[in-house]
């Protein structure tokens, strides 16, 4: 009944490292960002420094997150085929067809799980959209930061956006896209759990170890 599965190294170390740096920094950024947007903890005495600390953590996490995105983007050029930037552009005819099949599977129309070692076509496209959102969050974040930090570095990283968009508008989209990222996180975890339990491929643990369990029949793209 069960097909024989073998252990296969899929996610290289930089992929796993940046995954967890992203996860932790997104958690930190969302928590402190929510506080900065709507301060839900109130100081009881003036010698506290709650907003000060929240902003410090937000800025440190922001720099960490940016470095992680830079490393991961670099690794999409240098890493193995499962890390390559090519999987994030699934726009060939075949991949678009795959995407339709995968959509049917996730919408419970078909029962044929996507048989792919790395990212599915749908997964690759989702990651591309998320990556664009990440980049916007970084640029808009540095745009807001550049307001009080004058210097070429911050102008290049995001200050230029202030010349195109109004500050309150930048703040609004910086805030709204956080919710999109959090929604993505929920769907991401659920899909991984769903794939792990329906395909028995060890996907959930693979982001720690790097190894997936494959039948050998998967499309190796």
């Amino acid at each position: 009944m069960e097909e024989q599965r073998t252990r296969k190294y899929v996610w290289e170390f930089p992929v796993r490292l940046t995954h967890w740096i992203n996860a932790l920094s997104i958690l930190a950024l969302s928590f402190t960002g929510l506080y900065i947007g709507m301060p839900f903890i109130h100081a009881t005495s003036p010698d506290q420094y709650i907003m000060g600390w929240m902003r410090l953590v937000h800025f440190i996490a922001a720099y960490t997150f940016m470095m992680s995105i830079i490393i991961r983007s670099y690794w999409s050029l240098m890493g193995n085929r499962y890390a390559s930037f090519k999987i994030f552009f699934p726009f060939s005819i075949r991949k678009l067809g795959d995407m339709l099949e995968e959509l049917k599977f996730y919408l419970l129309i078909s029962r044929k799980p996507p048989s792919i070692t790395g990212h599915t076509a749908l997964g690759g496209l989702t990651m591309l959209i998320v990556w664009v959102i990440f980049i916007f969050e970084i640029i808009s974040g540095f745009a807001l930061y550049s307001v009080t930090h004058s210097g070429a570095v911050w102008t290049i990283l995001g200050g230029w956006l202030v010349g195109i968009m109004y500050l309150p508008t930048i703040r609004l989209y910086h805030h709204l896209l956080m919710y999109v990222i959090l929604a993505f996180t929920l769907v991401h975890i659920y899909i991984v759990w769903y794939s792990t339990s329906s395909e028995k491929n060890g996907l959930m643990a693979s982001i720690l170890s790097g190894y997936k369990f494959v039948t050998g029949k998967e499309q190796d793209i």
Binding site: G37, M38, Y106, L108, R111, L172, H175, L176, M178, Y179, V180, L182, A183, L186, V187, Y190, Y194, S198
Partner: peptide, 26 residues
């Protein structure tokens, strides 16, 4: 923004729940 965000979170949770139930029944 926060109302929209809360709506988005609720829609996501509802989507996941519906999918889980769908899978449990099928």
């Amino acid at each position: 923004a926060d109302k929209v965000g809360a709506g988005l979170a609720a829609a996501t949770a509802a989507g996941i729940l519906a999918h889980g139930i769908g899978r449990a029944i099928k």
